[in-house]
Amino acid sequence: MTGGEWLRLGDLAAGPIRRRLELGADAREALSAQLGLEALPVLEADFEIRPWMDGCQIQGHFRGEVAQVCGVSLEVFTQSVVGDIDVRFAPMGSPHLPAEVEAGEIEVSLDTPDPPEALEGDLIDLNALLSEHLALAIDPFPRRPDAVFEWAAEAEVISPFAALSALKPPPE
């Protein structure tokens, strides 16, 4: 997604920062196309960014409306998508960045918090962070709440040779 909302680590020297993002029509249209959505009428987020070790921690909440094609009825419908964001960043070479993260290999454990993400340079694109979290929150198999799948067995196909097989004597 283009046109990022950038945050520089140096901006946190004075303390925590709050940011509100409301994506404009062009940015929502580009993101909608990127994610394979029919439309993205609304996408907004509130962030609180605070210093963490030699990097930063970004916490926030996002809300959006996504238009998708129902997998049952094939009709376009709109549904709400909400989610929380809680990510830590540490610059490359930081002692707080596990060696696995710098090597690009991360072992995931459900019992421990996620390790910080490696940050090359001192800029963080908040729009990209929001886009990633939205992509993870979208239902990959959308189904309109009132959609009902009705299946009926196909009628038995009668072969033109069925009458002839009835004339055949049964095997002994």
Rank of each mutant, 00 (worst) to 15 (best):
L129F: 06
P16G: 12
E44Q: 14
L12G: 05
V157C: 06
A99H: 12
A45Y: 05
C70Y: 02
L31H: 02
P51A: 13
E65D: 14
M92T: 12
W6H: 13
G24K: 00
R143Y: 07
G3E: 05
L23C: 02
A155S: 14
I85V: 15
G71M: 05
A155M: 12
L129I: 10
P95I: 08
P51G: 14
L31S: 03
R18M: 11
A14D: 09
I158H: 10
I58W: 05
C56L: 07
H96A: 15
H61I: 10
P115V: 01
L40R: 03
E22L: 13
E48G: 13
G15N: 08
A135K: 02
H61V: 14
G3I: 02
G15L: 09
P140V: 07
L74M: 13
L23N: 01
S32N: 08
P91H: 04
I124W: 03
I58T: 09
I58Y: 06
L74Y: 10
E29I: 05
F161V: 13
L9R: 10
F141C: 11
S73V: 03
D139V: 06
S165R: 15
G55D: 07
L43D: 00
E22D: 13
E102L: 09
E172H: 10
G93A: 08
L37V: 00
L40T: 00
I85W: 11
L164W: 00
L126K: 11
L35R: 00
A153I: 04
I58K: 06
A14C: 02
L129K: 07
L126W: 07
H133P: 03
L164T: 01
I106D: 02
D114M: 06
A163I: 12
F149L: 14
L97G: 03
L35M: 07
P140C: 09
A162C: 10
V72E: 01
L31W: 01
L119D: 01
R8P: 09
H133D: 10
V148L: 13
R19F: 11
S73F: 02
L136S: 04
L21G: 00
Q34D: 14
L7S: 09
V69G: 03
L40N: 01
F161S: 12
L134G: 00
G55L: 08
L164G: 02
D146Q: 12
D114K: 01
A90E: 15
